[in-house]
């Protein structure tokens, strides 16, 4: 049984679901992707493949490779749903490949907006671990790929906005109580002033139904990797503290307690579940679980469900296209089977 990173417990995962470090790298002797010919793309993909093979077998044995041109739409969308690549990466599949490990904690986008975009994810708030792992992988790949670099402007990238470290660290955070209190928009604008962005995921809206957000440090030039990560950790810790206080306050009210209990009951007993409805219920139940208001399930079990019941991922696991009704029925079955062993105090 191969556990995914999001099914594994991480420190502070009552609020912080995961920590990701992304490194943007290019080779010197090939044009950047927008100007690459098909043979150029093939060359770059082969080189990455060979470089990965040369890594210690402990790492490279695990890599799967998906040629996006050969992928069905649901497979490609499922990669995005599982955070293995960005939506932009699958928008134009020409010449693009995705390498990823079985536990989905390492992925490498090849020929996307840059030659390589490698990312490592760790459960919980373990940004340092993710940074060290990404740094190691980068150093090992650099031995054979010789990444383009300039001493004043750092790693050379297709877009001027990624120059410098070419490193983008992200915390995945759950902010249901702050969202209900209407505080997220202001947090987002505070964060933007400092060079961070706060973006809803699993649903592109301002107030994403599941209340899961990505907090990212966008500054790449004039700052070292460790500083960028330290700053993200400190602002992430602030957000987490405020969320915890907001939860305590919110769950002191009978209305919020009622909403949590009802959400759990719906998840346990629904026979059909839309994904957007699942997200709303997930947000309430996860908050209830982490505050000890309900017991019998771990947050990471619930997060495993969050990934598994996404529309394209469900179709992929089923091995065939599903009608909306089939999808909703299967989703409800899967959710209630995972929740079956739990009971309220």
């Amino acid at each position: 049984m191969n556990h995914k990173w999001y099914e594994t417990k991480g420190p502070e995962n009552d609020v912080i679901l995961g920590a990701r470090v992304c490194m943007i790298r290019n080779m010197t002797d090939l044009p950047f992707p927008a100007r690459m010919s098909h043979p150029d793309m093939e060359r770059s993909r082969t080189r990455v493949e060979e470089a990965l093979r040369r890594l210690s077998p402990a790492i490279s044995d695990d890599f799967f490779c998906a040629d996006l041109e050969q992928c069905e739409e649901s497979t490609a969308v499922s990669f995005v749903e599982r955070q293995l690549c960005t939506p932009d990466f699958i928008a134009n599949p020409t010449g693009r490949s995705l390498f990823y490990t079985a536990d989905e904690s390492i992925s490498i986008m090849v020929n996307g907006s840059d030659h390589l975009r490698l990312q490592l994810v760790e459960p919980g708030c373990q940004l340092d671990t993710a940074l060290n792992a990404a740094d190691n992988l980068d150093t090992m790949l650099d031995r054979s790929l010789r990444f383009a670099f300039h001493k004043d402007i750092g790693y050379l990238t297709q877009s001027l906005t990624d120059l410098g470290t070419g490193m983008v660290p992200t915390l995945q955070i759950h902010l249901p109580a702050l969202q209900q209190g209407g505080a997220v928009e202001r947090l987002s604008s505070d964060a933007a002033q400092l060079g961070f962005s706060l973006r809803g995921i699993f649903d592109g809206a301002v107030e994403p139904a599941g209340a899961v957000y990505e907090l990212t440090n966008r500054i790449t030039l004039g700052i070292s990797e460790k500083n960028a990560v330290e700053n993200l950790k400190s602002i992430g810790a602030q957000f987490a503290e405020r969320e915890r206080r907001a939860r305590t306050e919110l769950l002191g009210t009978i209305e919020a307690q009622d909403a949590v209990s009802r959400s759990l009951a719906l998840l346990e007993s629904a026979r059909m579940l839309e994904f957007s409805e699942f997200l709303k219920l997930y947000a309430n139940v996860r908050m209830g679980l982490c505050s000890g208001f309900i017991t019998g399930l771990s947050p990471e079990q619930l997060d495993g469900l969050l990934y598994a019941v996404q529309p394209a991922t469900m179709a992929l696991r089923a091995g065939k296209p599903l009608t909306p009704q089939q999808r909703q029925t299967r989703r409800a079955q899967l959710v209630s089977s995972v929740l079956a062993p739990m009971h309220q105090p």
Binding site: D142, K151, I153, L163, L221, E225
Partner: peptide, 11 residues
């Protein structure tokens, strides 16, 4: 970026 220059990792 202002007058900032790279002060992160060197290959």
């Amino acid at each position: 970026y202002g007058s900032d220059i790279h002060c992160g990792k060197m290959p």
